[in-house]
């Protein structure tokens, strides 16, 4: 078996709050993502899931832990070495509007990375590459010279995805990429993520609080609570055979779009308790790990 594309071991990051109090945002997290695989990362706000995305992308420096990407240790890369890594590790943001320069033509936003990394021999080739990216994400290449405000939310997210794809990444970290979109558009973007993965073997770290979408898209899922992974495994195992009381509470809180199922839904509560000092992930069935 080939080694995983991304291997994260014992990652930790803490912040000092205003009152000097130390917050362990990420506290000893380990996971793997294979080539062509989607890992869904779920948990509540403040659980550390977005911090993990930023640490993996090297937008922030971890306090401890190892990040291996495509066989290379990347946790300590700096300067030119870090710049060389960027094309292979890209990000899609929650708010496509905030992440696009309003005064820049969208084609230029998508082209910026190609230009910076010298990936187009001349202006005509660059324009053709950007047009191809537009077609690939379902946008009209005739709209390259428009500005962000001329696009709907869903189209702007497609632009954000085109920009991430421009440098032919191996892994995309998508942090809440559909949260800001209209319901009737969310499924379109999820389908685009699926298509791109099937076409080019991309891997995704898909961070979201929409459990239904995470379940649909992910091969495996990791559930975070207060900076730790409390449960991880194949999607079906985690959703249908949840073992950790927090995972069970989280899944039982998910609203179901059917009035009969809603009437029958039994909600489980989880009372926050500190983690045991010796708490560690233990394998309960093959590939399904639970903190205990």
């Amino acid at each position: 078996m080939s080694p995983p594309l991304l291997e994260v071991d014992d990652l930790a990051r803490s912040y000092r709050g205003g009152d000097g109090h130390v917050v362990h945002a990420v506290d000893g997290v380990s996971f793997r993502i294979g080539a062509g695989e989607t890992l869904g990362l779920v948990g509540e706000s403040g659980s550390g899931k977005s911090t993990i995305g930023r640490l993996v992308l090297r937008l922030e420096q971890a306090d401890r832990g190892r990040i291996r990407f495509d066989g290379q240790e990347i946790g300590a890369l700096r300067g030119e070495a870090l710049r060389q890594l960027r094309p292979r590790l890209q990000m899609v943001f929650q708010d496509p509007f905030a992440s696009l320069n309003p005064r820049r033509r969208v084609g230029d936003s998508v082209a910026a990375g190609l230009r910076a990394h010298g990936l187009a021999p001349d202006a005509a080739a660059l324009r053709e590459q950007v047009a191809a990216l537009f077609r690939r994400v379902g946008l009209d290449p005739g709209h390259l010279d428009r500005h962000p405000h001329e696009f709907s939310g869903g189209q702007r997210q497609r632009i954000g995805i085109a920009r991430a794809l421009a440098l032919k990444p191996r892994l995309i970290v998508a942090d809440e990429p559909i949260t800001a979109l209209d319901v009737s558009i969310q499924a379109q973007i999820i389908n685009l993520f699926l298509e791109l993965q099937q076409d080019s073997g991309l891997s995704y770290l898909f961070i979201a609080h929409d459990l239904g979408m995470v379940r649909h898209l992910s091969h495996r899922v990791a559930v975070m609570l207060r900076g730790r992974i409390v449960e991880t495994g194949p999607t079906a195992a985690v959703f249908e055979d949840a073992r950790h009381p927090y995972t069970r509470a989280l899944l039982s809180a998910m609203p179901l779009p059917d009035p009969d199922l809603e009437a029958a839904r039994q909600r489980l509560t989880y009372t926050a308790a500190p983690f045991a000092p010796d708490a560690a992930l233990r394998e309960v069935t093959p590939g399904h790990w639970v903190l205990g």
Binding site: Q155, S184, I190, L194, H216, P257
Partner: peptide, 19 residues
């Protein structure tokens, strides 16, 4: 994603177009 016929990782039945 939980709709009838939406198998794991299959294409969702999206609404085409824009509002």
């Amino acid at each position: 994603p939980g709709a009838a016929g939406a198998a794991h990782r299959s294409r969702l039945t999206s609404i085409p177009g824009q509002p």
